[in-house]
């Protein structure tokens, strides 16, 4: 059950996207996020969706797998959709008692839902195609200029990689402890809210104790191997941009340019259901 959480996991495959330099992928994802907020109508979203679909196809990450990762955030999307659909003034389409669904509300609700879905799909593609180690190396390299103003770039990156590394371990640990307590007759599924919250104590206490134990052991193991922070540390595989990285940079620039031009309206193409 807990293993169903695929969001943020790495999906090993041989693809061009997997091979790209992590810094390029991070920068591209960042630019993509900005572009989603630049888009003003559904023609723009159709374009972004097509590009995302193309990248997904090239990455060989199955859409089914990505959709599975969406499950935990589906609630948030549905929730914002329902809120949005009722709060906007405009021409009333349907009236449900005191609540009105207006044309603006419907437009805004669909717009935000599409935006959220594109947002999550796009960013999860980054984690699906990039190993956690590469991801944090990429972040560290991008943040390095900021060490001059006192940002501990290496430490932040190290913390990120350890956190990512421990997500599956903690999920497995949770599953194990849950089963062990169930074997002693614990019941996590029935009862009212209060009772259920209380039933989580036998789960969370060992989980925290074990997490701290693992953290201490890891820290000692790192020190035993002479870890002393980022100063003077060299890399086994230094990152270097390749030809495909330069091609990717050009392509993502073109994508951003296309989105901006379309959103500014100067192309004269019709705007599909735009915001005011």
């Amino acid at each position: 059950m807990l293993r169903d959480i695929t969001l943020g996991q790495y999906y090993p495959r041989e693809s061009v996207i997997h091979r790209l330099d992590p810094r390029v992928k991070i920068a591209a994802t960042f630019l993509y996020l900005i572009m989603i907020f630049v888009v003003r109508d559904f023609t723009g979203y159709a374009f972004v969706t097509c590009v995302l679909a193309a990248v997904t196809a090239v990455s060989h990450v199955p859409v089914k797998f990505m959709a599975r990762g969406m499950k935990p955030v589906m609630f948030i999307i549905v929730f914002t959709f329902v809120i949005n659909i009722f709060v906007y003034k405009g021409t009333v389409l349907v009236s449900l008692g005191p609540l009105n669904i207006t044309d603006n509300g419907l437009r805004q609700a669909v717009f935000i839902a599409v935006r959220l879905i594109l947002l999550i799909f796009g960013t999860s593609l980054l984690t699906y195609t990039t190993k956690p180690m590469q991801l944090t190396d990429g972040f560290e390299s991008i943040m390095r200029p900021l060490t001059k103003v006192g940002l501990p770039a290496h430490e932040i990156a190290m913390m990120m990689s350890i956190a990512l590394r421990f997500i599956p371990v903690l999920l497995e640990e949770t599953d194990k402890i849950m089963k062990a307590q169930q074997a002693r007759g614990a019941d996590f599924e029935s009862g009212n809210l209060m009772k259920r919250a209380k039933s989580l104590i036998p789960l969370f206490i060992p989980l925290f104790v074990n997490a701290f134990r693992m953290a201490i052991e890891l820290a000692m193991a790192m020190e035993a191997r002479c870890y002393h922070g980022g100063n003077g540390r060299t890399r086994l595989n230094p990152m270097k941009l390749q030809k495909i990285d330069y091609i990717a940079i050009v392509l993502i620039m073109l994508f951003a340019a296309a989105v901006i031009v379309q959103a500014s309206g100067i192309t004269g193409l019709p705007m599909l259901w735009p915001s005011r």
């Binding site: 062990a180 307590q181 007759g185 104590i201 036998p202 060992p206």
Partner: peptide, 23 residues
Amino acid sequence: FQYPEYQLFEETVAKDIAFGPKN
């Protein structure tokens, strides 16, 4: 379970052992 010592959670040994019968 394998390595059951990581599943203890109560304040005292006696309370932890009582968890099963209590349930």
